[in-house]
Every structure is written in C-alpha cells, then in structure tokens.
Design a protein around this nucleic acid. Structure first.
Length: 642
DNA sequence: GTAGGGTTAG
C-alpha cells in the first residue's frame, strides 16, 4: 500500500512539476498557474504588510512568474518604507507598467517630499486616473503649496470626496481656516473623513468652539455621514487636553448611547468615547467622576481598565489601583508595568518586586520600572544586580535604564561600573542632555573631576542648568572651591539662571575657602538678583561661613531673621563655629536649640560638656553630665566625655 | 498593488 502510494505521488510530481514552471503565456490559459500567481502576490503583500520587505524581495526574485500586480506590490513595499531610490530602480526595471505602478511611484515621491520628481512622472504618465490627480494634489497640499494644489484641483477632469478632503486638510495645515471651512461647506458630498479632517484640523488650530459648531450643525443635516462618532471623540479629547471638562462632557452626552431605542440612531457611543471621557476626568484629577463613568460602562476594554488604574496611580491611590487590578480580566504588560512603577514611586518596593516576579511577561519598561524603583529607594546594589539580569534575559537597556544605573554608580561611588556604563551609553544611544548630566554627576561624585569636565565641555552649547550644577557641585564637594566659583562666574556670563542647588554648592565653596565677603555677596545676590527664596541649607552654610570666621553677632542676626524654622544643620553650624572659637556662651544657646530639636541625640551635650571641661568650668560640665543622666542620654559611638 | 481623515492609555 505504501509503495503504491509513493509510486503514485512520483507520477503526479512528474506531471505536475513541469507545469509549475510554465512561462507567461501559459498562465493565461491554465487556471492552476494563474492561481499560483495570485498566491504569490498574496504572500508578497502579506510579507510587506508585516514589514518583512527583505523576505518579500527574496520571494519576488525567486518567482519565475510575475505579473504587474507582483511588481506593483513590491514597488509599494519600497514606497511604504520610504526607500525611494530602490523603488525607482524597480519602477525602471518593470517590463510593463499600469496606472497603479505610476500612481504608486508618484505617491512615493510625494511621501518623500520630492514634489518635483513626482510632478515630472505625473506629467509624463500616459493616462491619469482620479487617484493620480488626488495623489499629486494632496502632495502639494501637504507640503504647503496650496496655490499649486488649487490649480491642479481646478484642472482635474473630475473630483471625489478624497480630492476635496485633501484640499481641506491642506488649508488646515497651513492655518487657513477660512478656506478650509469654505471648501468643506462647498463639497458636493461629504463623508466621515471630511468631518474628521475638519474637526481635528480645527482643534489643532485651537478652534475648539468652531469645531463644535460645525460638528453640531452637521448633525442637523440629512447627510450621509454615519460614522460621526470619530469626530465627536476627537472633540472630547480636544476639550480634555484644554481642561474644558464640562464642554467635553456635553459633547459626550450628545452622542446617542446604546439605550436610545426610540429613534433611529445614526451613530452611537463606542468604547473609545467612554475611554476618552474617562481620560478627561483623570487628566483633571477628578478621579471620582472617572470612576462613576467607568462603572456605568456596559463593556470595557483593556484601555478602559488601564486608564482607570493609571488614574488612581497618578493620584497615588495605590490601594484602589490594586483593587481594580485584581478585578481586571486580562491585564496586559502595560498594566503590570504601571503598577510596578506606581508602587516603586510610592516607596512600596516589596509589592513592586512581588508584582515584577509574578508578571507573566516582561518587557524593557518592566525592567526599567523595577530597576528605577530600587534605585529610588536606595537599593543600589540590587538595582545593579537587576540590570545584569535584565541583559542575561535578553532585554536591552535603553537611556532610562542607563540613567538609573548611573545614579546608582554615583551613590555607590563605583567608578569601575560607571566607566562600563559610560561605554554602554556611547554604544547604545546618542547621549542626550539628561544622560550627559547623569554622566557628569557620576564622574564628579566618584571624584573623577577631569572626566566630568571632559563631558561637560563636550556638551558645548547643549548644557542646561543641571549640567552646570553638577559640575559646580563636583568641584565644590571635592575641595576645588576656586574652580567651583570660577565656573559659577562663567555660568552667569553665559546667562544661565542659577537655581537654589547652584547656590548650595557656591556657598559651600565659600565656606571651604573661608571667603566671608564672597559668601555674603552670593547669598545676597541669590535673593535680590535671582529671586530665590533661601532654604535651610543656604542659611546653615551662611551661618557656617560667618561663625567660623568669628562673625557671631552677624550669624545670630541671620538666624533670628530667618522666615523658616532653623533646623539642626543651622544650629549645628553655629555650635561648630563656637567650638572653633571657644565661645561657650553662644555654644550653650546653640546646643540648647539643638537639644530641643533632637532630644535623644548626645552630640550637642558632649560638645558643650567638653568645651566647659576645656576651660575648666567644672560646675557647668557636671551640670551637663547630670542632664544627660536625667534624660537617659547615652553617648553616641565615637564621642567621649573628657 | 495606488489617493483623503483616524479619536483613548501605557
């Protein structure tokens, strides 16, 4: 039986195979061959649709029989990919061209903004159809050449809604709203695209009220536009972006809902209408109204759930987000990711990690979210471990990953890893300003000031205030106070507006070099010249500068004049200065203020006690000891009572 | 296989 069967198939092959290789003329006679071409064309079309252009080309080259459709499919593949040179080569090689070939080629040129080349072909082509005219008209319209578009539009032997819509869109893109509306009104017949084009164009031009007017007017007409819901949704979203929630809701309510059985419904709300309206509420942080609408929905899609869940995450209401997530039928990777990043942002690292470990599939964003969650909660080592695992599992790091890891390197002052990440950065992405800033910070924190400066200088004019802050801070915190101040001078010369962070470094530099006058001056200019409200860090440093140099009166004046409550850094700076200058009286004031702020801490007690001991005021020293015993204060490690 | 519009989230 098996033998007979294989003999039979052999015979069949002998008969069938030669037929498959028949050349062109036979394909017209033999239906089997014609259907083979159809199969081939379908295959090529599908490959192109899935953007597998190279596979399509291989199939194209291999096939012995091709018809014009085969060539056209291949041509449209190149046109879609904007590979205009290859498209033209193929076009020139074609054994015969039909109108579609010409139109495709023209649309290719037009899509690449090569209007002249497109026009040459248009003028050359043997017979033009409506598509040819519309292609060239929309080409001119899209590229702002409305005069030429209009000339061709008028010349065209006939027009359809596509021709009119191209003109309307063109006018809108050029901000010519008057003509856009006029053309829309003059159109002999309009379709859904006409309305969509006009409404979305008006919204892009900021004319939301005009868009609404036209939209509502159109609904009174006996028009043929059934599919108006698209345009309505566009307007809802437009209002949402402008924060006009009431107007958005008004439009939403005007779309007939599923419950309107009574009258003929020309169009009705779809799930996008609901999602868009929920989105509006979420953007306006009106999470309650969003939830009400969400509960009213008859059927929800993934987007509805994710929008609602993300709304709660935006409001940091992670519990509600979590509850909804548990009820959600089919969460996708985005749902998981937003929860992970939400829990990460709110410091709930364990939950974030649990979700990450549990999720069915991960992508780059999942890894980035969990890495950043660890980095933000100061779990730098784990962040780096995750970064390594990410790559083991075949997920590529991107600029977000690298930026998180660079921060971890900065905090750990791990320059070895930092350098490795720097290499990766150069290999994977073109560093943008934030990434370069992270690199500067990393090198500066690791004490590699020269490398930090190299990047800073490479950035040329693309530096922002953060780049300057990172560099000035790097100098200031590594003992290069003079360089820090010089760089600050350059920053002002280049008219970059400093921030409060800049001044922390600048004042620190002054403190470290004992530049009292300069310190005073910078503090004053921060307030007067740059209008920056001083924070406790600034006051603490100023007190430090003044106190250390013996200007105790002035330092106390600064503290008394503070609009905000002085914190332990401020009093600590004063106490430190008193210690240097052996001013016991003022030290007592500072120490008492410190003890008030931190009753359990022994630092101030010990310091004061030792100052009394130094000048042999034993009664006072004993009093401090008694106080410590009374309040059960134990010396912190590293301190001793002399 | 070629021409116009295209709404919501991550």
């Amino acid at each position: 039986m098996v033998k007979t069967w294989s003999r039979l198939t052999c015979t069949f092959r002998k008969i069938l195979l030669p037929e498959l290789q028949l050349s062109r003329p036979y394909s017209k006679i033999l239906p089997g061959v014609a259907s083979n071409i159809r199969i081939l064309n379908n295959k090529i079309t599908n490959l192109i649709r899935n953007s597998k252009l190279d596979d399509a080309r291989m199939l194209f080259d291999k096939s012995k029989q091709r018809n014009t459709v085969t060539w056209n499919s291949m041509l449209s593949g190149y046109v879609r990919r904007r590979e205009i040179v290859k498209a033209r080569q193929l076009f020139d090689e074609m054994p015969e061209r039909d109108t579609v070939s010409w139109n495709t080629m023209i649309s290719g040129y037009v899509g690449c903004r090569c209007l002249n080349e497109g026009r040459i072909l248009f003028d050359e082509m043997p017979c033009r159809d409506l598509v040819s005219w519309n292609t060239i008209i929309s080409g001119y319209a899209k590229n702002g050449k409305m005069n030429e578009a209009l000339r061709l539009f008028t010349q065209a032997p006939n027009r359809n809604p596509v021709s009119w819509n191209a003109m309307v869109t063109g006018f809108l893109q050029n901000g010519d709203l008057r003509n856009a509306v006029e053309f829309f009104k003059k159109m002999p017949e309009r379709d859904a695209a006409s309305l969509s084009a006009l409404v979305s164009g008006l919204i892009l031009n900021g004319e939301l009220d005009e868009a609404e007017k036209i939209l509502l007017d159109t609904s009174y007409e006996n028009d043929t536009i059934m599919d108006k819901v698209h345009a309505y949704n566009t307007l809802i979203a437009g209002y949402g972006r402008k924060g006009r929630i009431k107007d958005a809701r008004n439009i939403f309510d005007r779309i007939p809902s599923h419950h309107d059985h009574g009258r003929a419904v020309k169009f009705k709300r779809n799930v996008v209408s609901w999602n868009t309206m929920i989105m509006c509420y979420v953007k306006a942080r009106d999470i309650l109204s969003a939830r009400v609408l969400f509960e009213e929905m008859m059927e929800r899609d993934t987007c509805s759930w994710n929008t609602m869940i993300n709304g709660y995450i935006e409001m940091s209401e992670m519990e509600e987000a979590s509850n909804l997530f548990k009820k959600m039928p089919n969460p996708d990777v985005y749902t998981w990711n937003s929860l992970i990043s939400g829990f990460g942002e709110t410091g709930k690292l364990e939950i974030a990690r649990e979700l990450f470990d549990k999720m069915p599939e991960r992508n780059q964003v999942s890894w980035n979210s969990i890495i950043s969650a660890h980095e933000k909660t100061k779990k730098y080592k784990t962040a780096i471990e995750l970064f390594i695992n990410m790559q083991i599992e075949g997920e590529k790091p991107d600029r977000h990953t690298l930026s998180s890891i660079l921060s971890a390197c900065s905090e750990l002052a791990d320059i070895q890893l930092g350098i490795q990440i720097h290499q990766k950065v150069i290999k994977i992405v073109t560093p943008d300003v934030p990434l370069n800033n992270s690199l500067i910070t990393m090198y500066a924190r690791c004490g590699a000031i020269t490398q930090a400066m190299a990047i800073f200088e490479e950035m040329k004019s693309y530096k922002d205030v953060i780049s300057w802050n990172a560099m000035i801070g790097g100098y200031a915190s590594h003992g290069y106070a003079t360089s820090a101040l010089q760089l600050f001078g350059l920053m002002k010369e280049e008219s970059v507006k400093p921030t409060y962070i800049t001044f922390i470094s600048v004042l620190n530099a002054c403190a470290n070099t004992g530049l009292v006058e300069e310190g005073r001056m910078h503090f004053k200019s921060m307030v007067d010249e740059f209008g920056i409200e001083p924070r406790v860090e600034h006051f603490a440093t100023l007190v430090d500068i003044l106190g250390r140099n013996g200007h105790f009166e002035e330092a106390m004046d600064v503290i008394r004049g503070m609009k905000i409550e002085p914190d332990k850094a401020v009093w600590g700076a004063l106490l430190g200065a008193c210690k240097v200058h052996n001013d016991v009286k003022l030290a007592r004031v500072a120490a008492e203020a410190l003890i008030k702020l931190e009753p359990e801490s022994s630092t101030a007690y010990v310091l004061l006690h030792n100052m009394y001991a130094d000048i042999e005021q034993w009664d006072d020293a004993t009093e401090i000891r008694r106080l410590m015993e009374k309040h059960n204060i134990k010396k912190a490690a590293g301190y001793s009572l002399v």
